[in-house]
Amino acid sequence: MGQTLRVTVNGEARSDEVEPRLLLVHYLRETCGLTGTHVGCDTSQCGACTVLLDGAAVKSCNMLALQADGAEITTIEGLAPEGGLHPLQTAFWENHGLQCGYCTPGFIMAAAALLAENHDPSDEEIGRGLEGNLCRCTGYVNIRKAVKAAALAMREGAAAPIGG
């Protein structure tokens, strides 16, 4: 029946018996209790379920949990240290980059993967980086603004002297 899955989720090493057909998103939500990762479409268009798998953005509703064996997974709950906010989270808040908030974790995780590769994305590059995520509330205007603001904050943060 079950097979052993060994993964690191938000820094915590785990070992769980899972059914081979269990989707990664259900493993995260139900086995790990991390309900910040949402399911929006079941067919990989909406990106609400986006998490980081070894640093790359993946859609966790289109992946079996066992395919993540040995990987390091980051979900929205683990993006920033406990009690703190990642610059993307701050930027979404400050720029009204969310309304109902259902798609937001997926957008933030996809944007985190984008900004890890590109520290100063243009509008077009943001569009390409987030083309796999759908939002029904915002019209995306403030999401784009938030990603740019976060990129700026992260560049300025990286440039600041340590401890400064």
Binding site: T35, G36, H38, Q89, G101
Partner: peptide, 14 residues
Amino acid sequence: EDPRLITGHGRFIE
């Protein structure tokens, strides 16, 4: 509303 929603601590139906 946002602090819970941007950190994955919203409470949706599922």
